[in-house]
Structure formats: structure tokens, C-alpha cells
Design a protein around this nucleic acid. Sequence first.
RNA 1: GCGCCUGUAGCUCAGCUGGAUAGAGUAACUGGCUUCGAACCAGUUGGUCGGGAGUUCGAAUCUCUCCAGGCGCGCCA
Length: 570
Amino acid sequence: MNLKHILDQQISQVLSEISGDPTCQAIVNHSKSAQFGDYQANGVMALAKRLRLNPKELAEKVNNKLELSEFAETIDIAGPGFINISISKDFLTKQLNLLDKDQLVKKSNDKQIVVIDYSSPNLAKEMHVGHLRGTIIGDAIARTFEWMGYRLIRQNHFGDWGTQFGMLITYMFEQGGATTKLSNLETFYRAAKKRFDDDADFAAKARENVVKLQSGDEQCLQLWKSFIDISILHCQELYKKLNITLTENDVVPESFYNDKLAGIIETLDKQGLLTESDGARCVFLDEFKNKEGDMLPTIVQKSDGGYLYATTDLAGIEYRCQTLHANRVLYVVDARQGLHFQQVFNVAKLAGLADEKCSLEHLSYGTMMGKDGKPFKTRSGDTIKLIDLIEEGIQRAYTLVESKNPDLSKAEKQRIANVVGISAIKYADLSKNRNSDYIFDWDSMLSFEGNTAPYLLYAFARIRSIFKRAQLDADAEYKICIESPEEKVLALKLLQFTEVVEALLLDCYPNQLCLYLYELAGNFMSFYEACPVLKSEGEVMQSRLGLCQLAALTLNQGLSLLGIETLDKM
RNA sequence: GCGCCUGUAGCUCAGCUGGAUAGAGUAACUGGCUUCGAACCAGUUGGUCGGGAGUUCGAAUCUCUCCAGGCGCGCCA
């Protein structure tokens, strides 16, 4: 159940009854501090002002009409007109005992189709830390929609088409077509780029090969395909290491849209949206006009007839809306492409490529910065390879496991180090608001203390350890009965999992889920210190075991939505 | 030039449709392991929310302006 939502509805309704205006908002939120109860309604003051009433008197009036005895222990009117609600232990006890442990959150029964576009690596380039964010954030969002019962379709918009592939193909010819040289993609790419920059003949040949490739030359196509196979293999390896759910089947590359691009231009043309400007074909939209009246074009076809990024994305929208029948299309892409997506979305709607009801959303994320606050680059001008970050993370975790738990077997330490290292990297990214730029720093990304994934994993491992030590069944039925303050705080937090997951589906900010899990783990730690489980007896012990069980289930599920595995021992 | 984003504690960041005394982690300091795992817990110190003006019962949040940084703006993706 979504307690916040229920309280909001009930209080909003009372406000509406009193005012006669059905749109009244109770604005229920979690209370900021324990002295203000568990939930607070802030909407009374705004309404009082509109009705020119004394807010405190209105709050009293609302309170008299409210029927919240099922939920509330106390309802207080405080300050200028806040309604503070303290949830009763009886209610928490009842709800937690009723909770479906297999579900935890009631699944959505609207069968919306959600398409999510994320990761989007490039052909013949190794993935670097810049790819990390979109991949991790997109995966968390995808997992959440899927778990909540939506029909979710992943699209890995693989960058496999463009002029730079003529360069690679030409270099491949020079090297005698030895595919083994591709094993190090980055080196190969750089070598090809160097030849392209240094040698005019090479560059000319490269341009020729682009044309050949585009006109379907067999030999070029074959070489190109070998690049794709190797690149995808490389990405899948990383996905596996990072526990990312994308598979080969989710790859729908740019080239997939090649034969649809002419049709897109035709559609735009038929609707009279195209304007020729300096030989290029553009769509000019009023909403992208500046104060001086200058029009910002969305270029869809170059003067040489070639198509562009925008054209491919329009084809992508058409495919996702018309063929996949998406209700929502989510693009997890760097914030720098904000304008591009705004343009493409508007053109698509106007041209009817996407129907009115389909929601096109750019879930943008910030740019990676260096420690100096400037855009990130290493001294050599390269980016840090993703694989190096991962290996460093695992290595550091291994060292830590060895110092904490030297008696474990080597294989066990390695397994733990893998989970701890990877989870620390993912959580460091997921726990920040995706919108803001972020600073790349080895130490903060690979930290294992404080608000990090290992903290959550540690809380989980402690719980498992209780059951193991006492040889109790972690899946048995335990009857919960809330008594102490620490139990109540934990109980309420457990009940709020629904609120967080449902909010995630609306705005797609995984850092909200991270925050929730961190607080849940913290509430558990406080409970653990204050309320001994195995030294208690009878019903109290049963109840505390029940709380431990639910805390473990919720932590495990929440982390799983973030793409983070848990450990029984660490 | 136009537009978008960012500016919160020494550092890294939260802060939800405007709400009460702006919160965490980290660093520094204090206390807690013969007691369910100290990768932990309890506590102390630390902030003119970039500056200024405005809107209002109330502003980190909305508006304007200035400053600083980042990004994007016709044939790359």
C-alpha cells in the first residue's frame, strides 16, 4: 500500500468538501523531524489563504472531519496550520503482518508498453567511464519497470554507422584483413585515425569506402560486420561484469534504420514540413525561434543527400511508436543532447510519427568532470577505460576483504570482492541526482564506507548472519508486533518501499531509491544496536525476526532494482 | 550573440508539486567490541544555501538582475 498516497487522497477530499473546490491539494509529505510526527499535510495554509480564513481554525475544522483512526495514533495541528500525523503501532503491526512477502509492492495492472533506450556504445571503440552513467541508470530504470509489471522493451541504440567506418575498413584492408588485430579495438581505432589524419591518399580511399559501404559493397559489408560482432562481444562482456541486463537481442543499431530514412523524408515532405536551406533539407519550428526571429533548423538531410542523426532518431521514434506500440519512450542520454531531443520529439509529434498520447522523455544525465571541475580528461587526453575502473574496484575490494576476513577461502574472497567492487561503482553513480554534472574521482567512486553500496550489503549480511547463527528459517512466518521506538521507525520505513518504487516510475530518479535504501539500512542498524534479536524471547523475538526478515527482503529487492547483488557473508 | 544546466559545511552530495530549527557521507574530535559481524553505532564541531532585489503568512526552491563554471546552437553522432 502507498500510505502517503492514501493520506493525501483522504485529506485532499476533506479540503475539497470544505471548500467546494474539487482540486484541493493536501500536499502530504514525510515529516521533516520526529517531533512533527510521521507525515505532515501542508495544503491547509494555502487553502486558508484562498478562502480568507484563519489557517489554524481551518486545520481544526479539517481535523474534525478527518477519519484517520485506522492509521493514526495522533493528529496534531501545529505551527501556522500544519497537520501532523503520527502513524500508530497497531496499524504498522497489522500492515506488516499482511504484507505479501513474494511481492512487497503491489504490481501495476495497466499493461503499458515502455521502451527504454540506454547505453548506446559505439562500434570499434572501447567503452569508457563516460558510458557508465547512462548504462547503469538506464538499467536500474528498466529493471524497475519490468518488476512492476510493465511490458518493457530495451533498445541498445548501437552506433554502428557513420563516415568513420570507411577509415576503419580501409585500415583493415591495409592490414590484410586480420581480424585478430581487432582484439584491441582502441589501438586499432587510433592507428586507423592516425593513418587517416597523416595520409591524404588513405583519407581519400576511406571516403570511397564509405560510399561503397553505403551502396552495399559485399567486401566492405563483410568487414563492417566483423567489426560489429567484435564490438558487441566486447560490450556484452562488460555488461556481464557489471550485471547489466542488456543482451545481444536488445541491440537495435543505427544501421537498422538505414532503409527507413528515405521514407521519413518523404513523410515530412508530404506534410509540407521541409524547407530547403543552403542545399540541406530542414524542418523549422516556431518554438525554436529566438527573439530576433532567427529560426533554428532541424536538419534531416545534408546537401549531398546523406542523412543525419536527427533522421535516424525520427525513424527510431516511428519504429518505437508504430511497430513496438510504445506508450512511453525513455531516452537515457547525456544532457548535452537536450536540444537535439527537444527538436526531434517536436518534429516527430508534428509529423505524426509519434501519436499524441505517446510520451517521449529525455532522461538526461550530467557531464563527467575532472577533479578540477572542468570536463574530464586524463593527462594524455584519453578517457579512463571502463574495464580498468572495474578491475581497480574489484582489486581494492579484494584487499579490504582480505584485511577484514582473512580466513575465507581465496575463491570466496574473490566472489565477495567482485560484488563489493562492482556495487560500489554502480551505487556511487546511482546515488547522485542524474541531472547534475558529476566529478570523476577514483576514491569517491571506489569508497566502501558511509553511504555506499557496501554499507547496504553489510546491513543485509548482518541480518542473514542472525538467521544463520541461530539456525532459523529465513523464509518462515514470523508474527510482527511493534513495540519500541526503533522498531516503529524501521517498520514505517519498510512500509514506505511502495511509495519510493512508484515515484521512481514517474520521474525516473534512481537516487531516490538509493536514499531510501540507505535510510532503511540505517534504521536497521539503529534497531540492531537497540533491540537484541537472539537474546530476546518469545513473541518479542518472533517479532524482531519478522522485522529482520522484511528488512532483508526489502534491501535485497531494492538493491536488485539497482542492479546490485547481495551477499550472505562479506 | 542566443539558449539550456549548475553554484548548498573543508571535500562529495541530498533537499520531492514553496513549508516549521537547511540534512547525509567524508574529514577532525569524543565515547562504545569477553554482549546477534566495529565495512558498525552514539555524539561534538562545521553553512551569509554564489551576490543583490522582488513575489508571500512562509523562499535553497518561484521571478528579475549581476557574478562564476559547464554545455549546446546548419549539413558529426
